[in-house]
Simulated assay, not measured.
Amino acid sequence: MQVFEDFLKDPFVLKGLRLFIWIVFIIVCIGFLRKLAKRRIENLNLRYKAQKGIEVIGYLLIILLFLITFTLESVKDYTIIIGLFTAGLTFTLQELILSVAGSFYIFFVRVYKPGDRIEINNIMGDVIDIDSIYTTIMEMGEWVSSDNYSGRIVKISNAFVFKGPIKNYSMDFPFVWDELNILVTYDSDIEMAKEIIQGSAVELLSDYTDKSKANWAKMVERYYIENAKLDPTLAIGLTDNWITINLRYITDYKLRRSTKHRLFESIEHSISLTNGKVKLASATLQLLKIPEMNVRVNPMR
């Protein structure tokens, strides 16, 4: 007991206990103020920013307490102990430390923000929340085709911002390029088919193209990137069975599926009005020649 009492009377131990009590007090205050902001602030965007601001201020206070506790007074007698303790703590909590550092990196560098559509750690979805440890995503894809929600909510550690690429579909340039292939037969009027496909694309995508040009001009000014063609373009490919007309176009990143549906619907309707001049191709089996067979029938005796 005497050793334990002497240990508690040690000035360094007392400082550590005071620091621990202050940290617990600050964490409790963060939780209380977050709940208070959630109840009192009706505006969703303002409430989210207020909660994140409370978290950031709380963690800054904790860091400040560490600096005040261990730098204002001499701790040279405990240098080895502090070094070993810090190394062990860092190794044990490296994922947590990286996650907290990642949250600061996300907010200050603006890697992504709530509402952005991203792909991180091979998971694609819309960001619905970012806290000090996790990024919460409404997942897309998996067993669901195209860019539709799967219904699962995924929490990803913020540490992943330091571990791999982050694909952002909406930052700076909220448009993406997409393609569709129209297959026509060799006996079709290819020029008419090209005019139908190009005309449908121009008619349906003119709004996207005009809006994207202004955004792309800003991208060219900000980044080292060459200018790109934003109007719908066609490319033809030949196969053993049909001619492939590839349409490349730009669309809103949230409307890829509906845009492709509208394009296919418009193109199919226009082709049906050509009275057979343009025909959609499909995989078929053509029998070129039936081999000749000689059959001899012997009369019954």
Rank of each mutant, 00 (worst) to 15 (best):
P232S: 03
V154N: 11
K229T: 13
I245G: 07
K113M: 09
Y78K: 05
A214F: 11
L238Y: 14
N158V: 06
S146G: 14
D77W: 00
Y169T: 04
N275K: 12
I290C: 07
K76N: 12
T244P: 07
T185Y: 03
L93H: 09
V109Q: 00
N215F: 15
P114G: 03
I197T: 01
F32C: 09
I123Y: 13
Y112C: 03
W177F: 15
V28P: 00
H269F: 10
S74Y: 02
N148M: 00
R262K: 10
L263D: 00
Q51S: 08
F175R: 06
I54S: 03
T92V: 06
E195L: 12
E55L: 11
E265K: 13
D240T: 13
L255N: 15
N294A: 10
R117G: 15
D126Q: 10
G83R: 03
Y78G: 08
V13T: 06
L230K: 09
K167G: 09
M138Q: 15
L234W: 05
A87M: 01
F20P: 00
I190P: 03
L65E: 10
T251A: 04
Y149G: 10
L234E: 04
E95G: 11
V184K: 05
I118H: 03
L33A: 06
V144N: 04
F32S: 13
R256D: 06
S74M: 07
T69W: 01
Y112V: 05
A217F: 07
T233L: 05
R34A: 01
R301K: 02
M124Q: 13
P165G: 04
L273W: 01
E119I: 05
T69P: 02
E221T: 07
I128A: 02
V24G: 04
I236V: 12
T90W: 03
P232E: 00
K277G: 02
N275E: 12
S145Y: 08
L84F: 04
L247W: 01
A283Y: 14
D131H: 02
P165Q: 00
